[in-house]
Deep mutational scan, measured.
Amino acid sequence: MQIFVKTLTGKTITLEVEPSDTIENVKAKIQDKEGIPPDQQRLIFNGKQLEDGRTLSDYNIQKDSTLHLVLR
């Protein structure tokens, strides 16, 4: 499925993911596309910070959902 990740600069990254993917996996995909190390990434969905060990389906993230990427 496709999800979107919006950065603070207003750029939107499109990712191909599975609901069973962990947040860690998603961060690795963002690193592949953008070169941002996962330990600098914080992903936010519906105002909640997403934890590495959880999956997209844990957070009820579905296709065409938009996550927000904050760098630390």
Rank of each mutant, 00 (worst) to 15 (best):
residue 21 D to M: 07
residue 58 D to H: 11
residue 22 T to Q: 07
residue 37 P to Q: 10
residue 63 K to H: 13
residue 49 Q to A: 14
residue 45 F to P: 00
residue 20 S to R: 09
residue 61 I to H: 00
residue 59 Y to T: 04
residue 18 E to K: 10
residue 7 T to W: 03
residue 27 K to L: 14
residue 19 P to Y: 01
residue 27 K to H: 04
residue 41 Q to F: 05
residue 72 R to H: 12
residue 52 D to S: 11
residue 8 L to P: 08
residue 42 R to S: 10
residue 8 L to V: 09
residue 70 V to M: 11
residue 32 D to T: 07
residue 64 D to M: 04
residue 55 T to R: 03
residue 13 I to S: 07
residue 17 V to D: 01
residue 72 R to L: 14
residue 9 T to V: 15
residue 7 T to M: 10
residue 30 I to F: 04
residue 14 T to E: 04
residue 71 L to H: 06
residue 1 M to I: 10
residue 72 R to S: 15
residue 35 G to L: 08
residue 58 D to L: 09
residue 1 M to N: 12
residue 57 S to Y: 09
residue 71 L to Y: 03
residue 61 I to R: 00
residue 19 P to N: 08
residue 29 K to T: 05
residue 61 I to V: 13
residue 39 D to I: 06
residue 3 I to Q: 00
residue 31 Q to M: 04
residue 30 I to T: 14
residue 47 G to F: 03
residue 32 D to F: 08
residue 71 L to F: 09
residue 24 E to K: 02
residue 39 D to G: 06
residue 32 D to I: 05
residue 11 K to N: 14
residue 9 T to A: 02
residue 59 Y to W: 06
residue 33 K to T: 07
residue 44 I to M: 13
residue 56 L to Q: 00
residue 5 V to F: 09
residue 18 E to V: 11
residue 14 T to M: 08
residue 67 L to P: 01
residue 26 V to R: 00
residue 31 Q to E: 01
residue 37 P to E: 04
residue 60 N to T: 01
residue 35 G to V: 13
residue 72 R to M: 08
residue 37 P to M: 13
residue 60 N to Q: 11
residue 71 L to P: 04
residue 4 F to A: 10
residue 48 K to V: 15
residue 39 D to A: 02
residue 47 G to W: 03
residue 24 E to Q: 07
residue 61 I to T: 05
residue 29 K to F: 06
residue 21 D to Q: 11
residue 17 V to K: 00
residue 44 I to G: 02
residue 56 L to Y: 01
residue 60 N to F: 03
residue 49 Q to E: 11
residue 43 L to D: 00
residue 10 G to Y: 09
residue 35 G to I: 09
residue 41 Q to M: 11
residue 61 I to P: 01
residue 12 T to I: 09
residue 7 T to R: 03
residue 36 I to M: 13
residue 48 K to A: 15
residue 5 V to M: 08
residue 5 V to L: 06
residue 46 N to G: 09
residue 40 Q to F: 02
residue 18 E to H: 10
residue 13 I to L: 07
residue 66 T to W: 14
residue 4 F to Y: 03
residue 37 P to R: 03
residue 3 I to D: 00
residue 25 N to V: 12
residue 12 T to P: 14
residue 38 P to I: 14
residue 5 V to H: 00
residue 66 T to E: 14
residue 66 T to S: 02
residue 6 K to A: 13
residue 8 L to W: 06
residue 56 L to T: 11
residue 43 L to A: 02
residue 9 T to R: 02
residue 65 S to M: 11
residue 22 T to N: 13
residue 65 S to I: 12
residue 22 T to E: 04
residue 34 E to V: 03
residue 61 I to F: 07
residue 17 V to P: 06
residue 22 T to M: 07
residue 6 K to Q: 15
residue 2 Q to A: 05
residue 4 F to W: 09
residue 41 Q to Y: 07
residue 65 S to Y: 07
residue 68 H to V: 14
residue 36 I to P: 07
residue 58 D to A: 06
residue 5 V to P: 00
residue 13 I to K: 02
residue 6 K to M: 07
residue 43 L to F: 04
residue 41 Q to E: 13
residue 58 D to Q: 09
residue 43 L to T: 01
residue 62 Q to N: 10
residue 42 R to F: 12
residue 29 K to E: 08
residue 9 T to S: 03
residue 40 Q to A: 13
residue 49 Q to Y: 04
residue 51 E to L: 07
residue 51 E to M: 05
residue 22 T to H: 06
residue 54 R to L: 06
residue 24 E to I: 08
residue 45 F to D: 08
residue 40 Q to E: 06
residue 57 S to A: 09
residue 49 Q to K: 05
residue 53 G to S: 09
residue 55 T to M: 07
residue 38 P to Y: 12
residue 55 T to W: 07
residue 6 K to S: 12
residue 45 F to A: 03
residue 29 K to P: 00
residue 13 I to Y: 03
residue 25 N to Y: 09
residue 11 K to H: 08
residue 60 N to L: 14
residue 64 D to N: 14
residue 8 L to G: 03
residue 38 P to W: 12
residue 59 Y to R: 01
residue 14 T to D: 11
residue 72 R to I: 06
residue 14 T to A: 09
residue 49 Q to W: 09
residue 30 I to R: 00
residue 14 T to Y: 13
residue 46 N to L: 02
residue 5 V to K: 00
residue 5 V to G: 01
residue 23 I to Q: 05
residue 39 D to Q: 08
residue 22 T to Y: 05
residue 69 L to H: 09
residue 51 E to N: 03
residue 22 T to I: 05
residue 18 E to P: 05
residue 71 L to T: 11
residue 56 L to S: 01
residue 5 V to A: 03
residue 64 D to Q: 02
residue 70 V to H: 13
residue 57 S to D: 14
residue 52 D to L: 03
residue 10 G to Q: 08
residue 19 P to E: 04
residue 18 E to G: 07
residue 33 K to R: 01
residue 30 I to S: 04
residue 39 D to W: 04
residue 41 Q to A: 08
residue 36 I to A: 11
residue 47 G to Y: 02
residue 25 N to H: 14
residue 21 D to L: 14
residue 38 P to T: 14
residue 37 P to D: 09
residue 23 I to E: 03
residue 34 E to A: 03
residue 33 K to I: 11
residue 49 Q to M: 04
residue 41 Q to D: 13
residue 68 H to Q: 01
residue 49 Q to G: 10
residue 31 Q to L: 10
residue 30 I to V: 10
residue 53 G to R: 06
residue 33 K to Q: 04
residue 11 K to V: 10
residue 39 D to L: 09
residue 44 I to A: 10
residue 28 A to M: 05
residue 67 L to V: 05
residue 57 S to Q: 09
residue 26 V to G: 00
residue 41 Q to L: 14
residue 41 Q to T: 10
residue 5 V to Y: 12
residue 7 T to F: 08
residue 19 P to F: 03
residue 70 V to S: 13
residue 12 T to F: 08
residue 11 K to A: 06
residue 21 D to Y: 14
residue 52 D to V: 10
residue 52 D to N: 10
residue 16 E to A: 11
residue 59 Y to L: 05
residue 57 S to H: 15
residue 42 R to M: 12
residue 37 P to S: 09
residue 40 Q to L: 12
residue 48 K to G: 10
residue 17 V to Q: 04
residue 45 F to Y: 04
residue 5 V to R: 00
residue 32 D to K: 09
residue 27 K to V: 15
residue 9 T to G: 04
residue 56 L to H: 01
residue 14 T to H: 09
residue 27 K to G: 09
residue 23 I to V: 06
residue 15 L to D: 00
residue 64 D to T: 07
residue 41 Q to S: 12
residue 38 P to H: 14
residue 62 Q to I: 15
residue 57 S to M: 10
residue 32 D to E: 13
residue 2 Q to S: 03
residue 8 L to N: 12
residue 60 N to P: 14
residue 59 Y to K: 01
residue 27 K to M: 10
residue 65 S to F: 14
residue 13 I to N: 05
residue 67 L to F: 02
residue 16 E to F: 05
residue 64 D to V: 03
residue 49 Q to R: 04
residue 58 D to W: 02
residue 55 T to K: 11
residue 14 T to S: 09
residue 69 L to Q: 13
residue 39 D to K: 12
residue 21 D to A: 10
residue 46 N to P: 01
residue 22 T to F: 13
residue 25 N to W: 05
residue 51 E to D: 09
residue 60 N to S: 13
residue 11 K to L: 15
residue 34 E to L: 05
residue 42 R to G: 15
residue 4 F to N: 07
residue 15 L to K: 00
residue 4 F to T: 08
residue 12 T to S: 04
residue 68 H to I: 04
residue 5 V to T: 06
residue 43 L to Q: 00
residue 26 V to Q: 00
residue 67 L to S: 02
residue 53 G to V: 05
residue 71 L to A: 14
residue 54 R to Q: 13
residue 33 K to M: 11
residue 23 I to A: 03
residue 3 I to P: 00
residue 18 E to M: 08
residue 5 V to N: 00
residue 6 K to D: 12
residue 52 D to I: 06
residue 29 K to S: 11
residue 45 F to Q: 13
residue 22 T to L: 04
residue 59 Y to I: 03
residue 2 Q to N: 08
residue 1 M to P: 05
residue 2 Q to D: 05
residue 55 T to N: 05
residue 47 G to V: 05
residue 69 L to K: 00
residue 41 Q to R: 08
residue 17 V to M: 08
residue 42 R to P: 10
residue 62 Q to K: 07
residue 33 K to E: 06
residue 17 V to R: 01
residue 44 I to R: 14
residue 19 P to L: 07
residue 56 L to R: 00
residue 28 A to G: 11
residue 59 Y to H: 08
